[in-house]
Amino acid sequence: MDNQKKKGGVVALILVVLVVLAAVLILPKIYKKYLKANSKVSGKAYLYIPTNATYQQVLDSLDKNELLIDQSSFLSLAKDRQLSTKFKPGKYPFVKGMNNRQIVNMLIAGNQEPVDVSFRNIRLKENFAALASKKLEFDSSSFIHLLDSADFVAKYGFTKDNVYTMFIPNSYQMYWNISAKDFFERMNKEYRTFWTDERKNKAKEIGLSPQEVTILASIVDAEALMDKEMPTIAGLYLNRLNKGIKLEADPTVIFANNDFSIRRVLNRHLRKDSPYNTYMYKGLPPGPIMMPSIAAIDAVLNHENHNYIYMCAKEDFSGYHNFSDNIKDHQANAKRFQKALNERNIKK
């Protein structure tokens, strides 16, 4: 009986020793694999996984950007979790203290960090495409291809000329790997949200479509250095439209000539044959000459009612304008401004 007790005690002791040894040998490996911090960054860094990236590209990016302290423990857990077939594209934040379990779960779940995309007062759609492609994954050419597709933009109620009116300047959050088409649709959703019934009714009251309001707003924005003048300038151009008078807006001539260094519009500039040259053609141009601000759009919708049909920059170069309702006063204003240009030797 005593021998059996002794044997039982020995077996129990051996089991305890084995358990202790297992704990000593295995638990650190488990801790290292699952719970030990494995993010090498001291603050915050990002892993970008492009659409259609291979698993090897993901691993190469982790290595190239030095995001992991110990790659072997990460690879072990990644293999167990089948990360090679489950990772998702996107922009992923790495912060100090992250462990393998958190990193692998993030890449499998697609828990990426959204990107802030802000834009305003961008002159050309090509400039806009370039800006968007710097913030997001898609390249600018794929986005321009959509904007230049008459069939595509027609589905949303636009033409190739006026589709740029769809983009409402603001700050938006979206995922880095959004496609060019999904980005366009997101912007169309924002456009429809912006054009409330109140705004659409105001546009209808002045006899313009939302696209036409934005086209006019682009001219107003280009003319007005001071936001407070926008409603006055908008009212002036609406007066000219309603009277069938050419808008004769210098910014449209500059746009038509595709020379944005022009400071003084000359007769040779006015001879440029373009639908955007409002000295040559009546009515609004076919599209905007820049991305107007929300303030400019609302200035058109809430324009000032007056009789002005002429405007000229003030000769003090303050950024403000002299307004008039007759040609005599306008010519006097223009003469003073031309004299000021000559005195400053501004020839072009």
Rank of each mutant, 00 (worst) to 15 (best):
D325M: 09
D227M: 09
C312A: 14
D259E: 09
A150R: 11
K125Y: 09
I245D: 10
K189R: 13
L236V: 10
S133M: 07
P292M: 07
F119M: 05
E205W: 07
D325S: 15
V17C: 14
I178D: 03
V213W: 02
Y191N: 12
I346T: 03
I69C: 05
I103G: 04
L136T: 06
I297V: 15
V213A: 04
R268Y: 11
K33P: 04
I178R: 02
A45P: 03
I215K: 08
T51K: 15
L208F: 10
P89A: 15
L25G: 09
D273P: 01
N302S: 13
D60Q: 13
K202F: 06
K125R: 15
I49P: 03
L83M: 12
Q211W: 04
A180D: 09
S171L: 08
A224S: 10
K272I: 09
V265T: 07
T232W: 05
I178C: 00
L59C: 09
V24N: 11
L266Y: 06
N201Q: 15
D2H: 12
F158N: 00
Y279V: 02
L25Q: 12
S76P: 03
L270M: 04
W176A: 05
M106K: 09
A222I: 01
E223G: 00
K328G: 09
N326A: 12
E185P: 00
I168K: 06
A129I: 02
Y276Q: 00
R240A: 06
R199P: 03
M311E: 02
P210Y: 04
F128A: 00
I262V: 10
V153P: 02
F183N: 00
R199Y: 12
S179P: 04
A53R: 07
Y276N: 02
E113A: 09
I215A: 05
H306A: 15
P285S: 07
V163Y: 00
A109S: 14
L59E: 11
A224M: 04
M106Q: 13
I219D: 02
R336Q: 14
T159R: 04
S141M: 11
N322F: 11
K44P: 01
Q211R: 13
E185K: 13
N302K: 08
E229C: 03
Y191S: 06
N188Y: 15
Y172Q: 03
G283T: 01
G287C: 01
M230S: 07
K347P: 01
A217H: 10
L62N: 08
F317E: 12
T165A: 06
S42A: 14
D151W: 07
K33R: 15
M98F: 05
L21V: 14
I30D: 05
I206V: 14
